[in-house]
Design a protein around this nucleic acid. Structure first.
Lengths: 149, 149
DNA sequence: CAAAAAACCATAAAATACCATAATTTGATT
DNA sequence: AATCAAATTATGGTATTTTATGGTTTTTTG
């Protein structure tokens, strides 16, 4: 799978359709499902986006745990119940459900934000604010990200 | 098999028929059995739903355990005896048996809840309550679901 | 035969496919 | 580096299909 990189701001039309950035779409080129999976972020007022194959990996991971695992129960309750599979139309647009838009405070325009193996969709102004805060945190804590080859 | 994702609320008609959401039906497209298998949840007041092929996998899994395993005995007593195969009518509806409806406290309308490789059917109000509790648990324990690539 | 179950038919609303155009990017050529 | 042509992308509107739901008729079954 290609990575989701960079940011792209697009507009919603009157029917709620919005183009998924071409760069993101081409990251999903060899997926079986021609679309994305969206759900409300647990931690921010934004929408999380994944490929279907990544979602399937999660389902596989839950199978490893037993059927009476309550922690799994809570997690999969949230994750799969909230996940919305949305397929592209011919021109690469999706319709983001109302409740997701509301959660992210998105009205007429939305910012697609690359996150590597996933992406997020933000209200543009909200993102800018949050991003500034993130940068300040980073300057303080200087985290280390280990990379194994 | 496609995943069961998102939630869909549908109504029961006077004859007890209810549409299985189109999205769920298309997850079952290349199944031999055109329908679903339902049984009472062990852990919640809701109905569990599976594809027939997944039911067969469970039968396979029980084979791995010994024939004299009493735990297996209890499990398969519940699971297989309680399981109801229900086939779709032409428009994708099923009739949920009375005792299942009663167990889930479902009257005029039911919520189909995606769970990845399975799904559940809930009384809409009950689900909302339970879901809130799950979210609170998650925020406390912050579970990690590791995904290997 | 009577009751229950299954097949059949119909329809409004919602979702999706389709077609058209404007804006942008790319790439080729000077 | 600048310009123009071609291709891609984003966006807008319309037509068609799908879906959920209701009712009726036929078939099965006890």
């Amino acid at each position: 799978m290609g990575l989701f990189l960079s940011c792209y701001e697009n507009r919603l039309d009157t029917k709620g359709r919005i183009s998924v950035p071409a760069a993101f779409r081409s990251s999903l080129n060899n997926e079986n499902f021609a679309g994305v999976v969206l759900f409300r972020s647990f931690t921010h007022n934004c929408i999380e986006g994944l490929s279907m194959s990544r979602m399937e990996k999660m389902a596989g991971a839950t199978d490893q745990m037993g059927i009476f695992d309550t922690e799994l129960d809570d997690l999969s309750a949230m994750l799969f119940a909230d996940a919305r599979p949305l397929s592209f139309d011919v021109t690469g647009r999706i319709v983001i459900p109302e409740d997701l838009l509301k959660h992210a405070n998105i009205k007429d325009s939305a910012l697609f934000v690359g996150r590597g193996n996933s992406f997020q969709i933000w209200n543009p102004a909200d993102f800018e604010r949050t991003q500034k805060a993130s940068l300040n945190n980073l300057k303080k804590i200087r985290p280390s990200l280990k990379i194994s080859n």
